[in-house]
């Protein structure tokens, strides 16, 4: 009974300490748990991989620093995939803070692909207005009018890769890496209004909400949280043989360890609760 009381009244800081240990130990002694690819991730990979000539992949980094650990590895991996396969990329953000993150991601990936040139292999579009629905609708009409200049101040009309890209008709897939409900705006305005292929990379919190849109094919693919990012990293490594640091995969052991810890605590907590109730 004494032990039961102690357990039921355990200081929450003990749980924090155990969580910390569960995160740190797998980093230092990796277990190497396997990551299986799920259909939503494979669908997105295939869609990006089969981008035809004359089209581009649009990546919108619609998040800020608070969700960086989940969404940043997605941005980096998709960019690597596109650069490795010589697929043209348009990078943008509907969040003010996302533009800075997009610039860091681009610089990170360009270190591995130094031959990629702005305006030829990729175009970096700046933040234009805070009304994200209007930006998406504007892109559906004419990207050149919505973004007269790129992030570096160069006229969009003068960029070679943008000469043939005017709207979503020349975008093979628009990928929204979103922390909030921004991916829903891409579905509503880009997919519903213009028939664009839309995919989402979302935080795990948002993943469950997005599954209905996969079922109706309004989303052609989805990366859900760190797990989704790890799956894409694994696919890129296996299929394209790119050997680089896999930030999401490295974290998956720790993720699994904490999940096991949570399951154990939930079971123990329930047992303790029912035993205590019976004793009353």
């Amino acid at each position: 009974m004494n032990l039961l009381n102690k357990f039921m009244n355990m200081d929450r800081r003990w749980i924090y300490i155990i969580t910390t240990i569960c995160v740190i130990v797998p980093f230092i002694k990796p277990i190497g748990l396997p990551t299986y690819t799920t259909p939503p991730v494979k669908n997105l990979y295939d869609k990006v991989d089969n981008t035809p000539d004359g089209q581009a992949v649009l990546i919108s980094l619609d998040f800020d620093a608070s969700t960086l650990p989940e969404l940043y590895p997605m941005a980096v991996t998709i960019l690597k995939h596109c650069f490795e396969k010589n697929i043209k990329v348009i990078i943008t953000s509907l969040y003010i803070q996302g533009v800075g993150i997009a610039q860091i991601a681009l610089e990170d990936v360009k270190r591995e692909f130094p031959d990629k040139k702005e305006g030829i292999d990729y175009t970096f579009l700046p933040f234009v207005i805070p009304q994200l629905s209007l930006v998406i609708l504007g892109m559906g009409e004419d990207i050149h009018k919505t973004f007269p200049k790129d992030y570096y101040g160069t006229s969009i009309d003068s960029l070679p890769m943008m000469k043939e890209i005017r709207n979503f008709d020349q975008i093979s897939v628009a990928i929204s890496l979103a922390a909030g409900a921004v991916s829903r705006s891409w579905i509503t305005y880009a997919n519903q209004r213009y028939g664009a292929s839309v995919a989402a990379g979302v935080t795990a919190v948002m993943a469950a909400e997005n599954y209905p849109f996969l079922q109706t094919k309004q989303l052609i693919g989805m990366l859900g949280g760190l797990k989704g990012a790890a799956e894409y990293e694994t696919l890129v490594e296996k299929k394209l043989n790119i050997k680089t640091r896999k930030a999401a995969c490295i974290g998956m052991d720790a993720q699994s360890a904490v999940h096991i810890m949570m399951i154990v605590f939930i079971i123990l907590g329930n047992i303790a609760y029912f035993v205590a109730r019976r004793k009353k």
Binding site: V23, P69, E70, L226, A254
Partner: peptide, 20 residues
């Protein structure tokens, strides 16, 4: 339950990001 599971995963991911 599914939403809670995903929420746990999301919060742990943020912690993992900081420890990385």
């Amino acid at each position: 339950g599914a939403t809670f599971g995903y929420t746990v995963m999301a919060r742990v991911s943020l912690l993992i990001g900081r420890f990385q």
